[in-house]
Design a binder for these strands. Structure first.
Lengths: 221, 221
DNA sequence: ACCAAAGTTTGATAACTGTCCAGTATTCGA
DNA sequence: TCGAATACTGGACAGTTATCAAACTTTGGT
């Protein structure tokens, strides 16, 4: 278990040259993680990937853990931006908006970056509290976005029921990652799974009755 | 990328003492992987975990890759056995059998072993062909078991439609792993998600019409 | 143009990695 | 019980790891 530091990582680099170097290091670090995996994620491999000396990478990121934290912060920020954009979809019904979010999520899951990144993060989160916490915060915001649309589709549901349905929908979609993601065995089935997801998660959100989830749990507790 | 060897790994150990040692090594290797993660999965750490000398582990498993392959073979065999048992559920309707399989899968996903093991395997599969292939074969058999029940519930579906639905159901359930699995952030929601899964995946399998999936894909291609 | 701060190079450190091997101990069939 | 096969020990090997520090170059505000 790692120390859990809640402070936001400070991105190094003061002079222009420094910030450009830091950018190059982060870009190389991500490509190493995605193309070669966590085992190859070493300072030396990253330095080689951006044509730098090991000592220079080590100067900007004195601790390897710091590099990981800054990298993750950058990545999650870019995902949050994408997520914010999906909320600002005007001229669409609640149903169409939920369909859009589902399509966007599954489209993103099929990308190389997301498939590789999140499978690695889920594994690292098992024994790295910093990563576990950042992943949790990210998915909380995903659930919130989905929840807004679920609540709009079915206003009688309680906040907790909305959270439960959002979790179900989100988790179901994320499950596509190791099976239908980038270069995964059933990637060719993604259109079918995306179609079923859009249809049935909307149907689920619309037709669940208040109190029905509790009733289902009791039946088979 | 690793070399893809299709031959089944040969478990070392000829004398009784040797097989017992091999068992102890494999048990220790698994516990290291689950308790400390892939980064700690070293010969020395494994040897320490079972109170052996490094040279002895290295004698039984001259290559580290060999240890991984034998370990995975053992693990997947035990999962296959569990899966076979789930098929032999007599005196149950097709609907009840699908419900049972769903409950079993999600119950298993919530266990420490499965949560930790498969998150690690999904990550390792990104860059290790042997692991990727074994994981694929395992899930193929999972899909087949689910498919039998789906076909029984809805006999008019084509084999490909049955496969697609099985993939959807399986992937959706596996998605619970990083969110509702062992010590994961939303583990306390597992009863609710299990109830929704049992109810709605059965409903899905029963009510999808032949040709409906293709129609859904066309609508939003 | 100066010059302190920032950035970079070079080389070293100790700790760790998988693999190997000569020597020794144990096992178990003949 | 003998002895060849098997199992185990202790140590060594070359290569890798993250981190550090002294010397050198570049930067950019004054």
């Amino acid at each position: 278990m790692t120390e859990l530091v809640t402070d936001a990582p400070v991105r190094p680099g003061v002079y222009l040259r420094g910030t450009e170097t830091v950018d190059a290091i982060l870009k190389a670090a991500l490509s190493v993680l995605l193309d070669e995996g966590a085992a190859a994620f070493t300072i030396r491999r990253i330095a080689a990937a951006c044509g730098m000396k090991v000592g220079n990478v080590s100067y900007h990121f004195p601790r390897k853990e710091m590099l990981i934290q800054v990298l993750l912060d950058d990545l999650f920020n870019s995902y949050d931006v994408k997520l914010e954009l999906s909320v600002r979809q005007p001229n669409l019904s609640a149903e169409e908006r939920l369909r859009t979010v589902i399509a966007m999520c599954l489209d993103d899951i099929a990308s190389k970056r997301t498939t590789r990144l999140f499978t690695e993060l889920w594994a690292l989160a098992n024994h790295n509290d910093f990563i576990a916490e950042r992943v949790r915060i990210f998915y909380s915001s995903v659930h919130e976005v989905i929840g807004e649309h679920v609540a709009a589709l079915n206003p009688r549901l309680s906040p907790d029921e909305v959270r439960t349905l959002s979790l179900f929908i989100s988790a179901s979609m994320e499950g596509a990652t190791p099976f239908l993601g980038y270069q995964k065995p059933w990637a060719n089935k993604m259109p079918a799974i995306a179609a079923i997801s859009a249809e049935w998660f909307v149907k689920l959100a619309k037709s669940i009755e208040p109190g029905e989830i509790s009733r289902m749990i009791e039946q088979r507790g």
